[in-house]
Amino acid sequence: MATTQETQKTETPAAAEAETATLDVFRYIPEEDDKPHTETYEIETFEGMTVLDALIKIRDEQDPSLTVRHSCRMARCGSDALYINGTQRLACNTQVSELKQPIDVEPLPRFDVIRDLVVEMSEFYNRMESVEPWFQPDHEPETGDEYLQSPENRKNIDTVLDCIWCAACTSSCSPAASDSDFPGPAALAKAYRFYKDEREGEETRRRRLEMLENSHGIYRCHTQFNCTEVCPKNISPTEAIMEMSRDAIKEKLRFWR
């Protein structure tokens, strides 16, 4: 009796330990490969393991050449947006246990690949910069030192302020893929952050709208909602874009002014 209990005791943790995950990882090293290929890794998992943990484990234990951008590991720096099981997500806040196996890990689609899971981000940064994402008040502060902003107005931009530039949305956006002059969802959400900020004043608001209302701007959006679906920070760029285009159209409708 005692012995069976003992064996049972030793067996259960062993069975629990044996839990593994299989990852199909996109690999491409420019010096070695003409074309990308998929490599399969099997790893032991632990409770609470994220995809980033899994990739780091593969890198540390199996294949040090596996390359992925990552830094803060708390969904703040936005370095590690990847295409995991058919969706753009942050590797660091995606649990391995919640994914169907084998887990398919690819770099962000529609971005050129520098190496493995690392993509060329320069175009994305240029898109972000194209909407003039900096504060441009058209007047001096009301109080002499600080600008006044109502808590309601601040609340309106709370979600868009949370953007971490991970590029998940821009990667998911098909208009952004076919039109390089279109700033894309992330940049337009950033533009909206300033557009809605009452501290900038009416003049700047109008100028921002004029800058964006064209067929390569807010009117490019097809309301596919891909950006909204993939955003790890629950921002809805579609909502931001639609609000700006509504305002733009409304202003156009008042043609007699």
């Binding site: 529609r110 060329e120 679906e229």
Partner: peptide
């Protein structure tokens, strides 16, 4: 650096997998 352009073909190849398309799409 020179990077690998995954291109349109691959985009379309990916689109064949119906499961990746979301309701809005």
């Amino acid at each position: 650096v020179e990077s690998y352009d995954r291109g349109r073909i691959e985009d379309l190849g990916r689109a064949k997998d119906w499961a990746i398309h979301k309701p809005g799409m």
